[in-house]
Amino acid sequence: MDIETLYRSHKPLLFSLAYRMLGSVMDAEDIVQEAFLSLDDVPPEKIRNVKAYLCKIVTNRSIDRLRSASKLREQYVGPWLPEPLVFETDEQDDPFQQYLRKESISTAYLLLLEQLTWTERVVFLLREVLHYDYEEIAEIVNKSSANCRKIFSRAKKSLGYEPDRSEFPDLKNHPLVERFNHALTTGNTTQLLEFLSADAVLFTDGGGKVKSALRPIFGADRITRFFTGIRPSAPADLSCQIRWVNGQPGIVARVGGQLQGVFSFDIVKGRIRSIYLVTNPDKLTCLS
């Protein structure tokens, strides 16, 4: 069994599964590594389907981490947002980037998945995103295929959401993100009213580690006042660059070269409906 070849072939799929389950880049990377290391402990003849075996390992370890983190999540200060997945470059020939940019990993989609139970989330992801048949899913989650079919139907109905599968060929093709970036960097935050939905929502995740809004901010007017209020205290060397964030154009903010926050967006009918700002330093560690 050529572990290196298997790693190149299956890492994007396994990472996307773990990341959607956990909302953590670091945990997803760790679990994928552990899954491949576990192959050394099992005789090759005992594994009928390597991909299904690896998916099962990743699924089970993701659930274990969710269980251990449940208490911490209950005590989390302010809104909880997934750890942003950021690509600092636009490497068109990177197969890992290409795979993830075509997947449903937007912040809005990940937050919807949080509404599902762990079992529902696994079954839904394996069926809807990874296109497994129900027999394969049943083997991974240790349930009957008929039960998995019912779980999937319930989960899909519960979500009631179709992810935006738009492809962005480059980082300079989304005018709303560019205009948002321009408003931030120039300080002309009143421009936000021109392209925010009237019922837009701003979520800021500082995790109690840095100053941030402890509750979501509702409405374009209030969001504009929020950014207008904090703009005078922004350092002179604040810089914002458009980068790939969760498979879509987003914004990375730095002060003096040090990462300070990551913006991602939910855009519906030509307007920004949701803004997600992660400033919790623990969630930016792998990007610094």
Rank of each mutant, 00 (worst) to 15 (best):
V32T: 06
L287N: 07
Y132M: 01
S144F: 14
V201D: 01
I31S: 02
F87R: 11
R231L: 07
L54D: 02
T119M: 07
S68Q: 12
I275Y: 00
I140P: 06
P281F: 10
V141Q: 00
E103G: 13
D237S: 12
N142G: 09
A52S: 11
V255Y: 11
S153M: 08
K56I: 09
A253H: 10
V201R: 01
D40Q: 12
S16Q: 03
L130K: 01
P216N: 03
S212C: 04
V255M: 06
S239G: 15
N173E: 12
E83Y: 11
S212K: 00
R222I: 09
R215C: 08
H131S: 11
R127W: 07
C286P: 10
G229S: 13
V255N: 12
M21D: 00
I63K: 01
D199W: 08
I63G: 00
F124C: 05
L6D: 02
Y19E: 01
R222K: 14
D199I: 09
I47Q: 04
I230D: 05
R61L: 04
R67M: 14
F227I: 03
E194R: 10
V25A: 08
E4Q: 11
T228G: 13
L37G: 14
M1E: 06
R121I: 06
A28Y: 08
Q260P: 15
L193R: 11
I230E: 04
V262S: 04
G270M: 07
S104H: 14
L13W: 06
R231Q: 12
H131M: 09
A236K: 10
R101E: 08
E74C: 04
E34C: 05
D199Q: 14
K269V: 04
E136H: 09
P44F: 03
I105K: 02
L171Y: 07
Y7V: 00
R231W: 15
G23V: 02
I251M: 00
K56R: 15
T285G: 08
V32P: 04
L111R: 03
